[in-house]
Design a protein around this nucleic acid. Structure first.
Lengths: 203, 203
DNA sequence: ATAGTTCTTGAATGATCATTCAAAAATAGT
DNA sequence: ACTATTTTTGAATGATCATTCAAGAACTAT
């Protein structure tokens, strides 16, 4: 009787590790794409039963959005390591491009970019996802804008093109690199293309 | 009785127009992608009943392959118009890039490239499709190789880079352009990127 | 017109899909 | 230990999927 008036919060905390689950989902979506990844695939990949997934992420699309959020967070942390505490900004960019080539040349899960793959699949189909990814990609591009601005301040670049223009060309180039990798070129060709992109963007 | 020995070929010709059907399938696949395009969608788009589709193309994947074949044929014809009977090869390339930008900037069916979209969706999943598209893309690239070789012969380009290297950079750049368009940049930005690509590839 | 053959039709099939939900297990406060 | 609450479980649901196939329509040659 007394307990009817005393409402305390008694929560049982969820048992799964959110980041771990999301990274498993990221892998699954990267390999099969959004549509072809079934809830059964996701159950197997994440170890979560359907009910838990729906409880935590609303539905399959919610899980995708959460996965993309985690993916961008991870990539942003990675990004910082290339350009923070680096005397030469352009050296950081060079390494960034080299590692990108390595990633999409070696046959692994990380061959593709989740954002690019999902955007390509769901643009014109799922406006919510489309908008979300587009915004994230603008954030990513802004990182390059800041990097190029810093490079100009340090005298590593001339003022022939604005940081924004260089960043746009670079982002476009990286999209192209990743797409080109799908046609199975030799690693040598990929290195050449990445190097050429670097030179064009820094000219 | 006599007719048992006289075997003549009596064929009823199929009623549908193959090219028309394939172009309808191309549109459908470009909008929804391969997986999300159901046989019901294809029935509606092509006007063919399931049985006829299976009779003509074996299955859904067969229809995709036939559609990609038609798409590449159409694109190859289109390609020729830019570079045949043209005094300046590079002017042809400029127009080609301008029209590509127009296509993916304007909101229409032709916003995407069927080959690029299908390759992005089915790479790592459908080796047969993957191989088929990769080969077609090499043919497309070879067209650019020949174009750059001709431009060098005409003195429109220096020998700083080989025709193959230029063609690879160009193909990569076009992949990038089309991907970049998915993030909804202003038409102005797309024009700038295409122009920059042109300059980089012809430098 | 008739017979032989091919093409078209579209309902039926069985598989797989995303999603739901009631019951069971687990947690926290008393 | 007991009650209140939440999470986990996984079978059930209804929709949709690619594919099949038997029956009907259409064509060709006689």
């Amino acid at each position: 009787m007394r307990q009817l008036f005393i409402l305390r919060i008694m929560m049982r905390s969820a048992e799964f590790n959110r980041e771990q689950v999301l990274r498993a989902a990221i892998k699954a979506f990267m390999v099969k794409g959004y549509t072809k990844t079934s809830m059964q695939d996701l159950k197997q990949a994440t170890g979560l039963h359907p009910g838990s997934i729906y409880c935590a992420f609303e539905n399959k699309q919610g899980l995708l959005l959460a996965a993309i959020e985690q993916y961008n967070k991870d990539k942003a942390d990675e990004f910082k390591q290339y350009f923070d505490n680096q005397s030469s900004v352009l050296t950081g960019l060079k390494h960034y491009l080299e590692d990108t080539v390595t990633a999409c040349t070696q046959g692994g899960t990380e061959k593709v970019c989740l954002s690019q793959k999902a955007l390509n699949e769901l643009a014109q189909q799922e406006p919510l996802v489309e908008q979300y990814i587009s915004n994230n990609m603008l954030d990513w591009q802004q990182g390059f804008v800041d990097m190029f601005a810093k490079a100009q301040q340090l005298g590593e670049l001339n003022n022939a093109r604005s940081p924004l223009q260089r960043a746009q060309s670079l982002v476009m180039g990286i999209y192209g690199l990743r797409s080109y990798a799908h046609t199975h070129p030799e690693s040598e060709t990929m290195c050449y293309l990445a190097n050429q992109l670097f030179e064009d963007v820094c000219r």
